[in-house]
């Protein structure tokens, strides 16, 4: 088992919202390999809180989280090396600003790898390679991360986790703030890493188009509770999305519009524009 939530609740100590928990009795199993999971849900539903438990950045206030067979509970356990866990499960924060603190981009990306006691030279090579993967050329190496545009910061924070090469990658809204081309490049990159290495990757996103096109499993949070865990296909086919503040992917919406206005009978469940196009051509409309 990779990560397993056993009836985990988390109540932030400063949470003034009556007795509400940020997450409430969440149970969830994530395999050490082969998973490609989209974590979705409305603003404030508990996605980030869930993600922070995945590498023991915060501890459950009830229940426990097993991470590579280490059991994380409310109480700190001296036998558990939390830093080891954070090397195995890499987390990219929702706001890159919380992650970037070195004075150059390259130093920032090298920070993770250097913690693994590898040589500076090696760490440097890993960092330069990671920078390329996220679509930034070498001219960014010596820039101060603080002075980058929003999307550039985001890319650097993602490069950090790529250079670290953890066993499980957890990315909190990695595509928000990326331009459309960058979003594609990075999603293809994550997919490629997953295919090549079978690594488990968990991505938080609000982009239903991405959820439908790329992921094999969707986990939906609503007001702190896990309300769906299954394929994106059946999520969009069989579930009342508005109840969970979600929306349909654009392909489905567009094809539904065609069916309605032209009295067609297209199968609206197409994942990409190309699939939708094929479906229309199959109908051979006049």
């Amino acid at each position: 088992m990779g990560i397993r939530f056993n009836e985990v609740s988390h109540k932030y100590s400063s949470f003034s919202d009556g007795n509400l928990s940020a997450i409430y009795q969440v149970s969830l199993k994530i395999k050490a390999k082969d998973e490609f999971i989209a974590l979705v849900g409305h603003t404030g539903s508990g996605k980030t809180t869930l993600a922070k438990h995945m590498n023991a950045l915060i501890f459950p206030t009830e229940g426990n989280v097993e991470i590579f067979n280490k059991i994380i509970t409310k109480k700190r356990n001296r036998d558990i090396k939390y830093n080891e866990i954070r090397k195995k499960v890499g987390l990219v924060f929702q706001f890159p600003e919380y992650q970037l603190f070195e004075e150059t981009v390259l130093k920032d990306i090298m920070f993770g790898p250097l913690n693994f006691h590898i040589s500076k030279e090696e760490a440097r090579n890993l960092a330069i390679n990671a920078l390329k993967l996220v679509g930034l050329d070498e001219s960014y190496s010596n820039r101060n991360p603080y002075n980058l545009s929003g999307g550039e910061k985001k890319r650097v924070s993602i490069a950090g986790i790529l250079a670290m090469d953890p066993d499980i990658l957890v990315l909190d809204e990695p595509t928000s703030g990326l331009d459309p081309a960058g979003k594609r490049v990075l999603m293809e990159l994550f997919k490629d890493i997953h295919k090549r290495t079978n690594k488990t990757i968990i991505i938080i996103t609000h982009d239903m188009d991405l959820v439908y096109e790329y992921f094999s499993r969707a986990v939906v949070m609503n007001e702190g509770e896990l309300v769906y865990d299954g394929s994106p296909e059946s999520l969009f086919k069989e579930h009342d999305l508005s109840k969970n503040h979600l929306d349909y992917p654009n392909t489905i919406k567009v094809l539904t519009h065609l069916n309605k206005t032209l009295k067609l009978n297209l199968n609206v469940y197409q994942k990409t524009a190309i699939d939708a196009l094929k479906e229309i051509e199959k109908a051979g409309i006049l």
């Binding site: 331009d179 459309p180 081309a181 594609r184 567009v254 229309i280 051509e281």
Partner: peptide, 21 residues
């Protein structure tokens, strides 16, 4: 480096007359 909306990506690929509607 931008993307068109899905609806127009589809529309742009439909060149034959029979798809005008």
């Amino acid at each position: 480096y931008l993307e068109l909306p899905v609806a127009l990506e589809i529309a742009n690929s439909l060149t034959e007359k029979k798809y005008d509607s």
